[in-house]
Amino acid sequence: MRAWLGNAALVGFFLATLALFGLLAPNFATASNFEDLMSGFSFVAILAMGQAFPILLKGIDLSIGATLALAGMIAFDLSLIAHWPGYFILPVVLAAATLAGIVNGLLIVYLRLQPFIATLASLAAYRGLVYLISGRQLVPSLSTTPISDSWILGLDTDFDVGSALGISAFVKLPWVPLSFFVMLLLLAALWALLDRTKFGRDVYAVGGNAEAARLAGIPVGRRVIACYGVCGFCAGVAALTLIARLTTATEALGVGTELTAIAAAVIGGVSLSGGVGGVFGPAIGAFLLGAVLLGLTLLGISQYVQQILTGAILLIAVGSDRALAVRRRNRLAANLAPPAPAGGHG
């Protein structure tokens, strides 16, 4: 219930941001701007939802940018060098990205590395792997060849929702990119996973107190590995939507996106102290960041100022999260404290 209220506040803030920019920025409240928002930030939302899983466990995954590039490059190689059909490429790419995430989990569980260090090391290793398998360098002539597989490019289709609903005569709705629907589908699946299954309850238990969870009989190690696998899977999905839009993959794809994804997850109310949050918040957080960046661009504010404001938004988000946590703790302490004796202080 409380999580639901937090999400409602976040959605309210998101809508207020949209309304504010709609009033201030020319061309913000237009169909094409919302098309930009949906096609440009759906993959950030997907990454942020994935990132929520390690953070729920009090961990972090710094390697998702490199995983994204790795998944993209595998798709590039399989399509342009091996000439595999797209319906084979998609599952293979997703499996590879999931495996990359699982390896992170194994490093954390079996080598007892801290998540920050394990994923920092795998960030370097995966990025190196991207250069190693780069089809652009193995076959230089391919570096200017776009991916033309219809299954992969099919991910970049746009749907005219307005016409489909028969209301385009009254209001001009944005065309919705398939990546947005993929994001929604993933959101529904991950929400169900966290909220409706035993696995999800275990994740919250492990994030809240790993030792207590272990004593309660939850297989903590397996849950941790699975969560990093989910995070890798999301990076794979994000990679596919991204290369479909770019029709190519580069070695530098996704550099720095891990920090954006972490920021979106934190803005979306996933607490770095573990066990608090969901996947709906991170998705909204990503689009909130996107709306602010697009709105500021339309207002003609320089990219440099936008960086400053992005940092400020992050500080405000984590500050309010902290304030909520303190209030929650105080209320808990007040409930647990023995009733004050009559005539006591206060």
């Binding site: 920050f116 940092g311 992050l314 500080l315």
Partner: peptide, 21 residues
């Protein structure tokens, strides 16, 4: 009592923007 990783991540963005301005 904010988490250092987020504070310094935000500061990374803020300082880079300021440097570029």
């Amino acid at each position: 009592g904010l988490p250092p990783i987020i504070v310094t991540l935000a500061m990374l963005s803020i300082v880079r923007g300021t440097a570029l301005i």
